[in-house]
Design a protein around this nucleic acid. Structure first.
Lengths: 178, 178
DNA sequence: ATGGGGATGTGGCAAATTGTCGCACTTGCT
DNA sequence: AGCAAGTGCGACAATTTGCCACATCCCCAT
């Protein structure tokens, strides 16, 4: 184990950081939380955390912009990008910028921990292209259109040709794992 | 401009490699084509191409497996991964393994060139114009996977994570229309 | 401030879709 | 011949929808 267990959580949703922070504290991380980029950079400089969970969508600035700054401070930092909607291009961008991994919200604490630790053997395991399950495909598509419509559920349902009530119910459920 | 314009195209679909190869030749690339991993590695060693387009789904082996081997031969190689479906996890995996970019088929020659030449990422799935309904998206996805499995309904259902009976019923309901 | 026009969250219920078995038949391989 | 795998289909239960009816909110123009 490394010399410290500092985990930096960056998200402007206070509720989310609180919940995740508590869960991580319970797993013996020393949790630092930041609500914006400036705070995050300060904490990073001050505590030199080993891992970070960064929301892609911060109020004004983008998590994608924050990412390289954090890594410049500490090149060893393992950053996990969290995003509300799944977009391949942002996922690719995040990894190119040095993120360790990329997850879609809502993600469970287990998902997050797994995303940090899975990195171990990307090559050895037989990676093959599996077609995404229809559920997964649907979920990602919904997230994309929802993002396009700025989170407007009614409009999204209309454009997706599904009933608003149905969309609501789907959104309440969990994302499907691959 | 670099010392050579060799472009390696790796895909087991001969028609695709021919079309893409011709288009790239017209754009003054010297095109090398391979139908499997072994050929690809040979060509890579022999010609030391600067760029490569690799289909993620090769017959037996996976493009994701080939990727690190190519890069080991030539760390400068710019590899573009082409895939049949848009899947965030494989996109992330590909970039982690050193791919320059990730595109979904069908991609135009322009898309491919743009993916090589710009850091900005073209929206991989070509979304954002008019969101297809979930039904339509599902239908297209089913057709793709079904084709990939040579019309095998049982196998398709398994890979799609849906019940065989359900797939049967879906296929019956919509013969082929749009 | 007052009243549209949208959006959102819920509950309830009928209608439609799925999940699950089972069974008969065909194919390809040994 | 016998086996493994795939296919088509009927029946029935379990879920998931579509749809309607509110009750709130919020924003904006009157």
């Amino acid at each position: 184990m490394p010399d410290n267990h500092y985990l930096l959580i960056v998200d402007d949703d206070a509720t989310f950081t609180r919940i995740l922070g508590r869960a991580m504290t319970r797993r013996s991380y020393q949790v630092l939380t930041a609500g914006n980029a400036a705070e995050a950079l300060d904490l990073c400089r001050q505590y030199n955390p080993r891992r970070a969970v960064v929301d892609l969508k911060l109020e004004s600035e983008s998590g994608l912009h924050l990412l390289p700054q954090l890594i410049r401070i500490n090149p060893q930092l393992e950053v996990l990008i969290l995003t509300g909607y799944s977009s391949i291009s942002t996922a690719v961008e995040a990894i190119k910028l040095g993120a360790l991994n990329y997850l879609c919200k809502p993600a469970s604490v287990e998902d997050i921990l797994a995303a940090f630790d899975t990195d171990a053997i990307p090559e050895a395991t037989g990676i093959s292209e599996d077609p995404p399950s229809v559920e997964r495909l649907e979920w990602e598509h919904i997230q994309r259109v929802l993002a396009e419509n700025a989170g407007n559920i009614s409009a999204t349902a209309r454009r997706l040709g599904m009933h608003r009530r149905t969309l609501q119910r789907k959104l309440q459920k969990r994302p499907v794992k691959q």
